[in-house]
Design a protein around this nucleic acid. Sequence first.
DNA 1: TTTTGAGTTGTTCGA
DNA 2: GTCGAACAACTCAAA
Length: 468
Amino acid sequence: MQKTIIWLRNDLRLKDNPALYEAAEHGIVIPVYIFDNKTQNDWKLGGASKWWLHHSLVSLAKDFKKFGINLIIRSGNPKEILGKLLIESVADAIFWNRCYEPDSIKRDTDIKKSLEESGIKVKSFNASLLFEPWEIKNQQGNNYKVFTPFWKHCLSLPQQSEPLSEPKFKPTDIALKSDNIESLQLLPKNPDWSGGLAEKWQPGEAGAILLLNHFLDNSINNYSNGRDIPALGSTSTLSPHLHFGEISPRQIWHAVNFHAEINSSPKERHNLQKFMAEIGWREFSYNLLYYYPDFATQPFNKKFAYFPWLEDAENLRLWQQGKTGYPIVDAGMRQLWHTGYMHNRVRMIVASFLTKHLMIHWHEGAKWFWDTLVDADLASNSAGWQWVAGCGADAAPYFRIFNPVLQGKKFDPDGEYVRKWVPELANIDRKYIHSPWESPKIIRNYPSPIVDHAYARDRAMQAYNAIK
DNA sequence: TTTTGAGTTGTTCGA
DNA sequence: GTCGAACAACTCAAA
């Protein structure tokens, strides 16, 4: 009987896991997670992501345990560890699901080559994207640079196949040494800032499926409008689960289509399409990162290499801490700090504020998000920041500079979101919730705006004009 | 090859 | 208070 090592990465689930499924069909599986925060070149896991990973691994180990299978945990260089594991387990094959970040592609290509040279069977699968980036090309044979035609093309392709069920595992008595998940030291201590994260999230496959069902039952019917109102919580918040592969986009695709079959009013279909387009943006981001391997650091629009970004450590710190004096910006930054998450609409507002009002490089914002977001994802994070900064693919026109007061009034009219995350403003009059400096009453402990909107807007426009 | 239509998420100004 | 136009001009995708 074939013995296969399953090298798990961002595919921490049992259902719809192609590498695991195929290996289990043919014999015994040995699931392995290798934590590598040294040899990986850059973009080492941020604090919030580490917290998530810890709990996701605990959950996955428990799920395997139900079938009498041990999830093997190791720490170090994947190439060396896989080599050792092959010897210890006398396995015939190694399967994995593909990663798409440039460094990961390089690493996996190298490992695959050397394993094959030693006669080991290696097979990789697609578990985290609906469409392989190299398969999506326009009629000229190039990658798409505009979202709408990209997504139209994707939707014109044959239907997604059905998600795979949980594998039927064959009994195994293989006993390999495994590290404790605790020994990876993924959890924060001194101080432990993770209380807010634990309140909000349930990492792991079960939590992901619960959340998808909750979203389809409760929120999707108002998605198109509701997704812009941060106080409503109408977005799916599936992003961290998707990032770690606790659920697959294919499972989401099918769940959404099933939902569409039983609720097919035009309005509901519109909401479902809007939601699937967000999954489409994730695909688009992965395409960009695939075709432009330096997308995480280099502006897609090369003109922006000459943009006069300002270095301002103090303003950067105030932005990070949620002390800019603009309530909607500060609420977002504090939601992020507290929960490891920020509502999509507010991400745009705070990113616009950093890059346009403060004219601080989008790299700084991307780095902060990378460390603090539980859904930190190289493709989506880079694409999002480039888009807001104006240098990305299909980006916002440069003169589109969000007015944080208007955005607040429009999308948080009662200030419910602001009051929740900025307690200093909890009792301020509705009229002044987004511009507390206009309030006749004295507001304690809340800063004045660190920059004047009209001045900052004008300054940003001049800077953009300079690189045209 | 040339042409044509279109492009996630806005703001400001002035009537 | 509401509404439409201006904001610039470019690149992409497909016919």
